[in-house]
């Protein structure tokens, strides 16, 4: 149908002489034919072009630029980037605390991810019960997600202040020896994890809650008819039904685990003596404190590769399990 309509659309003048020279006419006809053949594609790309342009400018191009910068030395202020080959990558793997900060980010990320998944699922199960004011309770659980990290950091710094912090005063009141958390890498890591989990668990809860509400209730009824206990129902019905959601949370969580930044920047400052420094904060320090864009870009490329590998692995495993 569309072909017939398109045929009709060809102006007659272009098919007869007088509208220009013969080769021009042939070219014009070819162009029109090509346009007709690719009409849908042209319309599709025209609609998509703003998004493609946006994506190219703000994602593809910066990513390519960062890859280029990772092979250079550049302060960003004076002169052009100076090509240094793989020097920055060699520095990453042989000098300073780059690998250490990458591993630390991974360790923090894994702990935070598993704590968030377990706590998130438990809270979602509780919130899935039909109780009075469940909507309000769900909102309360989600509130920390909405609080800016700068505000959270201010609260935490007040709580943990080594001189007159609320926690210290409470410990003294209960006759305990006060702990100077800021002097201990272990304690600061503990607080960093707790704060990040508390701040982010609301999102996990909401996603799990949506998953729980999407499970077909007939499955539970069938389980009950078969005499399965509540634990068995949870284990053999709820958990398998939530697997796609858990996989989604795992993949996004792994990517997110390398993006922990604010609690380090605003609460621990990477301390004590660099023991809570993580890769993203290290990249920030290189880029915007040391103005070493080459090194910051090289670290970013390493993080990108690691995240990509982990995500692909995770995806493959999840696909295998689902099939």
């Amino acid at each position: 149908m569309s072909r017939i309509l398109n045929k009709k659309a060809i102006p007659r003048e272009t098919l007869v002489s007088g509208g220009g020279s013969a080769p021009d006419n042939v070219q014009s006809i070819r162009l029109q034919k090509w346009m007709r053949r690719h009409k849908e594609g042209i319309i599709g790309y025209s609609i998509l072009s703003p998004m493609i342009l946006y994506f190219s400018i703000f994602a593809v191009f910066p990513a390519l630029f960062v890859i280029y910068l990772s092979l250079t030395e550049w302060t960003g202020v004076a002169g052009l980037p100076e090509w240094v080959g793989i020097k920055n990558f060699r520095t990453f793997f042989t000098q300073g605390d780059y690998v250490e900060t990458l591993i630390r980010a991974g360790v923090y990320g894994i702990i935070i991810l598993f704590c968030s998944l377990i706590i998130g699922l438990l809270i979602a199960l509780l919130l899935n019960q039909k109780v009075f004011g469940s909507g309000a309770i769900r909102t309360i659980w989600y509130l920390p997600v909405l609080v800016p990290f700068a505000v959270v950091a201010q609260m935490v710094n007040t709580l943990l202040s080594p001189v007159d912090g609320v926690v210290k005063q409470m410990m003294v009141r209960f006759g305990m020896e006060p702990i100077v958390f800021q002097e201990s890498a272990l304690w600061m890591s503990f607080w960093l994890i707790i704060i990040t989990v508390w701040k982010g668990v609301g999102s996990t809860v909401i996603i799990y809650l949506a998953g729980l509400q999407g499970i077909d209730t007939t499955l539970y009824e069938a389980g009950k008819v078969d005499g399965a206990s509540r634990l068995k129902i949870f284990w053999y019905i709820t958990i398998p039904c939530l697997r796609p959601i858990t996989m989604f949370l795992l993949i996004t969580g792994i990517i997110g685990s390398f993006q922990i930044f604010e609690p380090v920047q605003l609460i621990t400052y990477g301390g004590p003596h660099g023991d809570t420094n993580i890769i993203l904060y290290r990249i920030y320090q290189d880029a915007f404190q040391a103005f070493n864009f080459g090194m910051a870009s090289a670290s970013s490329v390493v993080v990108l590769v690691v995240t990509l590998i982990l995500s692909v692995m995770q995806y493959r495993i999840s696909q295998r399990r689902i099939t």
Binding site: G96, Q182, G271, P272, H273, A290, N292
Partner: peptide, 22 residues
């Protein structure tokens, strides 16, 4: 050369000496 990073190395040392047990 590398001023901010050299300072960072020193700050880390001074803190680990005066706050830590190293």
């Amino acid at each position: 050369k590398n001023g901010p990073k050299i300072w960072e190395a020193w700050h880390k040392a001074q803190e680990s000496v005066l706050i830590g047990d190293k």
